[in-house]
Design a protein around this nucleic acid. Sequence first.
DNA 1: ATGACTACTGCCATTTTTTGACACTCATCT
DNA 2: AGATGAGTGTCAAAAAATGGCAGTAGTCAT
Lengths: 231, 231
Amino acid sequence: MSRAERLLDLIEEFRRRRRAVSGRDLAQVMGVSIRTLYRDIASLRALGADIEGEAGVGYVLRSGFLLPPVMFTAEEVDALVLGALWVADKGDALLAEAARKAMARLTAVMPIELVDRVEAQYVVVGQSEHSDQETINMATVRQTIHREHKLLINYCDAKGVSSGRVIWPFMLIYFNGGRLISAWCELRNSIRHFRTDRIDSLLEISSRYPSRRHALIKLWREAETCANLDK
Amino acid sequence: MSRAERLLDLIEEFRRRRRAVSGRDLAQVMGVSIRTLYRDIASLRALGADIEGEAGVGYVLRSGFLLPPVMFTAEEVDALVLGALWVADKGDALLAEAARKAMARLTAVMPIELVDRVEAQYVVVGQSEHSDQETINMATVRQTIHREHKLLINYCDAKGVSSGRVIWPFMLIYFNGGRLISAWCELRNSIRHFRTDRIDSLLEISSRYPSRRHALIKLWREAETCANLDK
DNA sequence: ATGACTACTGCCATTTTTTGACACTCATCT
DNA sequence: AGATGAGTGTCAAAAAATGGCAGTAGTCAT
């Protein structure tokens, strides 16, 4: 086994492990001495790999490095393209832009034949009802969801009456016609949905909501399942 | 410069060039002799790179090999997830499956933090009208489109009357409620749309249609633009 | 504080690999 | 036929890699 091959195998081993792994373990797997293993790590670092090592803990490969190519089938490419087209059309402005960028990134690492498939533009999203555009910054909403923070919104209901609400947002629902924020509402003491185009303004509260996001999602899914069974 | 580093630089050079490049050029760029360059090529091939070399022409890296990681932002991941969810829900059965598989492939090469983002399942596609499921094999339709072949379909119109049609399919349109094939229809001598759930059966004709697919798409887009301007 | 477990570096003799130069073969295109 | 290229084997010299050893330093549990 050449050294180059061994270095690539070592990267693969890091990727397989995911958790911290000791130098001794790696040396054994690779069939080399611990001294050589340390040198291999140093070489990979010199090549740009972000490998973190902590005494008493072990090594972990922090971010992606020299990946095998993702070999999509043509149909998988079609699916990604179609999905991105839908998000670009029906998502909020920031997410729409993100979809375009994501496809550009993927296209950049594809072989030519698959690039041709992307550029053929033969899968299309059909036209549908007008999508109501919100004025709020959806990136703030996403961030608030991920930090599990409370959100203060100025909400305008169907009758045009504005009210301030403190909510715990945990999910976003995308329709052809617009977007909803699913949240626990402190005013109503239950899960409520808020149309993003009816939110005049919002403010992230730097206070973590007492329930966990995944638990609220689970609660929501159970309520949806009951609602569907009732039909 | 270590040899491992040089091999990686050589891969990068191949990726940069895209066209065939001679061994002599590469040797000069890498600062090594032509003999060493040949050995480096052999080493890369041993590592799995698909490098094609032709006397009088030069070298070309055929397919992807050891790519830099695709560094998606969190929002780009959200966009891909949401798109895949839509296709999984509203696409034909094969394309839905392809969406799931594509996301699995992408997830496998993502850093942990982004995998967490995928698994959070906090972006959701809202429920909408029932999607009419076709019985035909949509992979055959896609293949026919790409080969620019004619397609024989047994079509059932809105009144329930069946008729055989020879069409030149060039595009697929996906709605929440179903799918359409856009095609030039030999019977009507113009572009028509066919609901996939009304096609009883189909047969690819191994005969290339006389127009080019991209020209038909262009024609279709121009007609759609005129239709939109008339509103 | 101590011990176990770990990452890390320098040094050295020995082994292994790599290099460039040279000579040669073969394929494709004009 | 000639030009342009890919490709392989051999060799002496140079460079790189290896494992063992000795040492430094950090984290965690007792």
